[in-house]
Amino acid sequence: MKIGLPKGLYYYYCKKWVYFFNELGIEVVSFDTNKEILELGNNVATSEMCLSLKIFLGHVVYLKDKCDYILIPKLNYGIKDQMCSNFDCLYDLCNNLIDIKILTFDSKKEIKNFIKIGKELGFKRNEIKRAYLKASIKYNKELKKLKIENINKLNSSNKKILLVGHSYNIRDKYLNEIIDIIKKYNVEIIYSDLFDDDYYFYLSKDLYWKYSKKNVSSVIFCKEKVDGIVFLTTFPCGLDSLVNELVMRKIDKPYLNLIIDDLDSLAGMETRIESFVDIIEQA
């Protein structure tokens, strides 16, 4: 049996599930983003949707004939840890626009829903529970390792840049072309999505988006230690339009605000990044 996980939006927050399905012996199908997928997404999406959502829809269309089910959950962490409103309508959007079989659940009671899904696929309760535990242990170990690695970069003697953005933008293979440009210049890149959300309170008291909290607290944590901050946003992102603006107004570090609309012309981005790195190196 094959389950498709579209590699966009929620995928980067739910790597645990990949391990879970592997543990049960189910094959997980997902592809890296490429130009074809983006074009497929553009065909389905309406013009005002954000680039990340377009990429996600493209993945779903691309996976259509390549697997038995596609998993699209609703991420739900309560009122104080909200997700972007695009996450709320993912399931209904795909269900109405694209003709596929979808597995879905509400992530508020994760284990309960996993058992439900597992039973639907024909597994026993014990098997599912064991697989879930194994997967979460493996996932937590890996995450811890990555976090320590990320923080250790702060001690390096090179110039350091903090990259602030949502996981689905920084980790995406296709959008990574921009990060590759930064990597050319011998600087350490510290990722904002590997921080805990402990410090956001010092900068913004009202903040209620789960993953924006991480970004803001990463800025506070690294403010003194890094040389510059790069904000990476896809075009009409609702959360970043407000949160990043507030952060930019409150910090006094050199920063660069990169807004991606489409990746057709990278020359302009290259020039901006080059001059930004020049500023950092002279300071």
């Binding site: 309406t46 005002e48 954000c50 409103s85 695009n86 709320d88 309508c89 109405n96 609702g238 339009s241």
Partner: peptide, 16 residues
Amino acid sequence: SSFCTPEIGSMPIIDK
């Protein structure tokens, strides 16, 4: 209003 994210998500469904 332009860039209203919740409505953008619901528009394809309304259209259908």
